[in-house]
Simulated assay, not measured.
Amino acid sequence: MRALFLPGNSPATIYTHAALATAVRNAGHEVFMGGIEWVLPDITAVGLPAVRISPLALEDVMAFMAGMPTDPEGAARAAGRVYAEIAVDGLKPLLETAEHWRPDVVVGNPMFYGAPLLAHHLGVPTVLQEWDRGDASIYHPGALEVLRPVLDDLGLDGLPEPDLRIDVGPPSLRPDGAPGARPMRFVPANPQRAVEPWMYGRGDRPRVAITGGSRVFQGDTLHALAEGVAALGVEVVVAAPEPVAEGLRARIPEVRAGWIPLDVLAPTCDVIVHHGGGATDMTAIASGVPQLIAIQDVSAVEMRRLAEAGAGIMLEEDRQRPEDIVDGCRALLSSPGYRERAQELAAENAAQPHPGELVGAIEELVGG
Rank of each mutant, 00 (worst) to 15 (best):
E348H: 06
Q352V: 01
G310E: 12
G360M: 05
V366M: 08
A347K: 13
Q296F: 05
V298F: 11
S334I: 00
L365M: 03
V326I: 13
H275E: 11
A351C: 03
G277C: 05
P322D: 03
E364W: 01
E323H: 07
P355Y: 09
D297Y: 13
G278K: 14
L333W: 10
I325K: 07
L332F: 14
D324M: 10
A300L: 14
A294T: 14
A351N: 02
A309L: 08
G360S: 05
Q320F: 02
G337W: 08
Q352Y: 07
A331T: 02
V366D: 06
G278R: 13
V273Y: 03
P353V: 05
G277T: 12
V359Y: 12
R319T: 01
Q320R: 09
H274G: 02
E348Y: 07
A294N: 02
Y338R: 12
Q343L: 03
E308K: 10
G368S: 10
A350C: 01
E357V: 08
R341K: 15
R339T: 04
G312V: 02
E364M: 08
Y338F: 15
R321M: 00
H274K: 07
A284K: 09
V289S: 14
H354W: 02
G288K: 01
N349Y: 07
R330A: 04
I293T: 15
D281K: 08
R305F: 05
R305S: 10
G328A: 10
A311G: 11
G328I: 10
G277R: 05
P290A: 05
L358A: 06
P322G: 01
Q320P: 00
P290E: 14
I313Q: 15
G276L: 02
E302V: 15
T283E: 15
E302M: 11
S334H: 13
I285L: 14
R305E: 10
L306I: 10
A279W: 05
R305I: 04
G310K: 12
H274P: 09
R341N: 12
V273D: 01
A294R: 10
L365A: 00
E340W: 04
A309M: 07
T283C: 03
P353Y: 04
A307R: 05
Y338W: 14
S287P: 01
P355E: 12
S299E: 05
G360Q: 06
M303I: 00
A350Q: 12
M314D: 01
H275Q: 07
A300S: 09
G367T: 12
A351Y: 09
G356E: 04
D281I: 06
I285F: 07
I362M: 06
L332C: 06
Q343W: 03
V298W: 03
G310D: 01
S335H: 11
G337Y: 11
G368I: 00
G312W: 14
R319Q: 12
R339Y: 04
E316V: 07
P290Q: 12
H354P: 00
I285G: 00
A342I: 10
G277E: 13
G277F: 13
A309R: 07
V359M: 09
L292P: 07
G278E: 12
P322A: 02
P336Q: 13
M303F: 05
S287Q: 00
G312L: 15
E302W: 01
R341C: 10
G312S: 11
